[in-house]
Design a binder for these strands. Sequence first.
DNA 1: TAATTCTATTTGTAATACATATCTGATTTA
DNA 2: TAAATCAGATATGTATTACAAATAGAATTA
Lengths: 233, 233
Amino acid sequence: MEETLTPVISITMTDQVEGKLLEYFKQRNLKPGDQIPKEIELVEALGVSRSVVREAMSRLRMLGLIDVRKRRGAVMAEPDIFSGMERLLKPHFLAHESIKQLFQIRLMLEIGLSDFLYPRLTQNDLDRLEGVVEAEKKAESKAERVQLDSQFHSELYKITGNETLMRFQKMLLPLFQYITEYNAHLRQPVAPSSVTHTDLIAVLREGDAEAFRIAMRKHFEPHYKIMASPPEK
Amino acid sequence: MEETLTPVISITMTDQVEGKLLEYFKQRNLKPGDQIPKEIELVEALGVSRSVVREAMSRLRMLGLIDVRKRRGAVMAEPDIFSGMERLLKPHFLAHESIKQLFQIRLMLEIGLSDFLYPRLTQNDLDRLEGVVEAEKKAESKAERVQLDSQFHSELYKITGNETLMRFQKMLLPLFQYITEYNAHLRQPVAPSSVTHTDLIAVLREGDAEAFRIAMRKHFEPHYKIMASPPEK
DNA sequence: TAATTCTATTTGTAATACATATCTGATTTA
DNA sequence: TAAATCAGATATGTATTACAAATAGAATTA
């Protein structure tokens, strides 16, 4: 038997219409704000029932690709590429392995963002980071410390000015909170790092991209110890 | 007027049912393979029409969160967190700025993945990378070179064993192909790098994670020159 | 027992009806 | 004249009904 013979997954009319709509948007080069045909027109053009058209449109609407209102019809919108993903990012829906891999991606990003920090870094940014560290020193509850820790890292993302990156990180936050708790309860808690947030700020002030990558790598050392995959393969 | 007073976006029944279903899955701690109530049961439990239930389910099905078949009903599935996102990742739907930011993320990832390479690296991996480089030398058309270039980088992702990362990269590929063409036509083409793929392999053989980050950073230098944000802010 | 046929059940699609929001333009009012 | 009000038209939102199609499981048959 050919391995390429994968089982037929029922392609419903809805699936097809969804695809045809995406194709239509692409062909017509529709931009945010552009009008989309009315349901009835689509029904007639595609030769399907309104139920099918509506189910397909409902999907595109969920993705934020289109914006639909009564009487005005549907128009193209600014899509948020992560909106669909966000719904699935509850620790609950994901396999442990996926969560771990997302955390690895986070580590990669934080080390790799180094080069995008320095060209845009301002005194204001440094002050904000200092502020977070101050708050961390005063923090009393563990929950507060966890919150401030992720805030520190959020500030770093912010400096890059990369909105997509920030959106991605914000979306992953609940996942990481979950990991933190998981590590704290079921495994040994993550050891404190030899490179503190204060150290990182110092490198930001006086170092360069390469120095920051090294510092950040050391800052995450305890996580690497836990997360890095063994050389099984 | 308060700035926080954003306009009310009509929350349809469908939106609500979608949310309630997600909540239900979470509360019940449903895992892949677990059965979901039939449409009729949901209709009765939620007090809405079947159309509404179906539109909501259609969304979850698109995300791959549930798998629905005739007669058998719906069961939880292994969600693919990127499936919704993928539909929107046509260069056409995205603003230029978003594409640029996604490319920046790619640069971050490729530099940050360094640490996940060495613990898992095998001779086999090195051989595959060598193979790609050989093919690159023999490549005649530009399209072929572009394809092999991204294949080289894909092989690197593969070594990390991080499926989520690989999935993410595969999804972004068409976008980067678009960027390559865009740079080639409308702007000056990306200059050749001083650190070649062959050099990268050498570092993989003899160096360590830090050396690889530096090499990769240099390999991407031409891209950084084009992509890095100016210190506007 | 194993293969086949039948039947009941559940989803997929279609069609219709009406509710609801809102845009347009006409009408009224100040 | 300008503003406010109202009425009608129009497109989407929801509900309901009907039937087609697939299929899991029971019943039948070899």
